[in-house]
Design a protein around this nucleic acid. Structure first.
Ligand SMILES: [Mn+2]
Ligand SMILES: [Mn+2]
Ligand SMILES: [Zn+2]
Ligand SMILES: [Zn+2]
Lengths: 134, 134
DNA sequence: ATAGTAATGATAATAGTAATCATTATCATA
DNA sequence: TATGATAATGATTACTATTATCATTACTAT
């Protein structure tokens, strides 16, 4: 089954490759409607699934209830602010660790989903300010 | 608000500490009903949330659609078989990496959720067998 | 034993994602 | 460029895991 290049598909991939914000399906839907007003949310989901299966994008199952999508398929991990939800890139733990777990677990490794949770610099600052004020 | 020790709560924690299989809420529900036939699924969810907030268990938001729970709160990561869904323990990447990302990202780190995906030894074997047969 | 209140069971509500289906758009071929 | 096969779409519904609601029950400090 070959993949046709449709307007929605092209725009979704472009948007994901352009932005660094790891949007959800709904965020992409709202952005895409500006250029393609009649697009359906179902089209967003279907294309995200297809693009992920083709290895053109990454799907992030963070623990926030909604999935995030990433146009950057280079090896990297993510950090999410527990306060504002922002998702940023971080570097992965090294190849060393990867080989270790492959040896120890006996699994054949396919991919990884590594998320670190914390407070982003902005929220950290705000929280500290609030504490001082009390 | 202090936490009362109820039958359901005690049994959930015992089951999670005993088993190594990282069950979902529904799996726990079915197991608990053998000992507590009138228990409600809502009770399972409420207790899991409470126990997680108290730091007595861990909640795993893997990319499988359902959450898994872990009675082992020692520092470790997880590996999930993409074929059969089995979730096993692996060791975390080292403290070194943790410090690096704290420095580089500027975040104040709280926790991490690290999942590696692959094929478990059993599924790997089965798949190889099938290929040979073709 | 009792009073105060946290927890429960039953059930409805929510929300994100997936499925359905008639219609439309894409694209290899002529 | 026109055509035909079929992949993709929009609109809508269905599904499923989790959360909220609320009257009733079970804990526990006194
Ligand atoms: Mn990223
Ligand atoms: Mn574990
Ligand atoms: Zn933040
Ligand atoms: Zn397996």
């Amino acid at each position: 089954m070959r993949m046709k290049i449709t307007k929605a598909r092209r725009l979704i991939l472009e948007e994901l490759r352009k932005c660094r914000s790891h949007p959800t399906a709904d965020e992409l839907f709202r952005r895409l409607r500006l250029q393609l007003p009649r697009v359906s949310l179902a089209t967003i989901y279907r294309n995200l699934e297809l693009l992920e299966r083709r290895g053109l994008i990454r799907r992030l199952d963070l623990g926030s209830g909604r999935r995030h999508y990433d146009g950057n398929i280079a090896d990297h991990a993510h950090i999410r602010c527990i306060e504002c939800g922002a998702v940023a890139d971080i570097c992965s733990p090294g190849r060393r660790w990867w080989h270790e777990i492959q040896q120890e677990s006996g699994y054949s490794l396919i991919g990884s989903q590594i998320e670190v949770i914390g407070l982003c610099p902005r929220c950290l600052k705000r929280k500290k300010g609030n504490e001082r004020r009390r």
